[in-house]
Amino acid sequence: MSIIKKIKSIILPMRVTGKYMVSKPFTVMYPREKAVVKKQWRGLHGLHSNKCIGCGLCRMACPNDCIDYIYPEGVDPRDRKQMKLRRPAIDWGHCIFCGLCVEACPTGAIHHTQEYKIYATSDSRLDLIRTPYEIATEDDVRKIYDDELSKIRELMQTDLLEVAAGGEWEEVIKKLRERWRDLWYMKLDGKLDEETWDKKAREIEEIVLEIIKQVSLP
């Protein structure tokens, strides 16, 4: 009896390792092969722009304050009826990918994609903040910004820039943003003509961009 047991104790582990010997490896040759991602993987966010109703639940659910809204051009944010037109911008530099915004979304507009690579094209902190037009899944809504200043103009509506700058710069950008907003409202009210608004806003945006570049990525 004990002899059979001992022979078994030799054969059984050999069988296990023998099975492993002919099995495929689990490791993935990462840069060359794409990593296999599970269906429930909380990857980078995508946005179905036509599903979004601008309800604001994703911003309320976010524990890290990395979501804020951008209104389309020519829409007055003070008019509460236009609220449904706003779309979320996300700061992936602060996002912890907890998935609470996706859970909160009533229409399934904001969602996780299978993408897991956060990439920055320069060493600018600005690359990690994505406007709704950058993460949109629809081709006609999606756009790529040709320079940083045009992206800054979109993001001046949000508080993501000051959170991204952080520290002593936070107050500075907040004040600059208030001044920018006054100019914006004046333009929407028709007190400023297009050219003056563009010139004055550009001045503020250039300062903000300069500050954001100070807090560039390591």
Partner: peptide, 13 residues
């Protein structure tokens, strides 16, 4: 290679 395969690795590549 064989040890790597048994560990479910790829070993030297």
């Amino acid at each position: 290679k064989v040890i790597g395969r048994i560990h479910h690795r790829r070993s030297i590549t």
